[in-house]
Amino acid sequence: MSETWMIAGGWMAAGLTIFLFSFLYRDNPFFKAAEHLYLGAGMGWWFQVYLFNIWKPKVWEPLLSGDFFVLIPAVLGLSLVTQFIPRISWISRYGFTFMMGYGAGLAIPATLSTDFMSQIAGAIQPFTALATMTPMMIFNSLVVAGGTICVLFYFFFSVEHKGAVKKISNIGIYFLMIYFGAAFGNTVMARFSLLYGRFDDLYTFSGANYFYASQILLIALVAYFILHSFLGGKKTEEEEPAH
């Protein structure tokens, strides 16, 4: 790739990143442009993925090699498109029915195994090593089993939650909240690593070899916001308060 294209790519990446971040301040035409570009690029990307990763290797090439069995799923898939023609849209029911059928067939045994059997076996399995367990390990296993039961009580819809049931389900909520807190922290950490990635790119594109793309674009955007607010943009915003 030539240097000119590298620099152009850097400006494009820095510009789109800054335009999307500008939404944190307020909606603006630059964000809209980046949003629509992202939408279009996303659609284009998935179109070529479907075309070259699914249609070509799984339908077109088997047909050319004489494997006509692929016509069955292909026709079922195409039947979904008949939704767009009201007169024959009933054909799509065959495709939908097949999808729902195999989806349920795959999901039900797996769910039963993972949501029921594994839960029970996982809770009682540690107690098979009772002779070698330390008091702390026993306590830990009891907390896990007790937590499972309390959380299940919270999600029990057949009885009104009052009295003892309410107390048990409240303990379940504490277990849930501890989990959610841990999950929140974990996910936020992961998101920060994505943010650092964008900042790292902006830093890279702020170098002289990219003609200070990040700084120039950032200054230009700030200048736009200042000018826009002086030229009546703020008034328009005030006329349409959020609530």
Binding site: F116, I120, A123, I124, L130, T148, F155, S158
Partner: peptide, 23 residues
């Protein structure tokens, strides 16, 4: 809900029986 009831009962009873059996 029945499934949850089974899980709750099985976990409670299972722990008692497995502990007893191991002992």
């Amino acid at each position: 809900d029945f499934g949850k009831l089974v899980v709750m009962a099985s976990v409670s009873l299972g722990i008692v029986l497995v502990s007893l059996g191991t002992k």
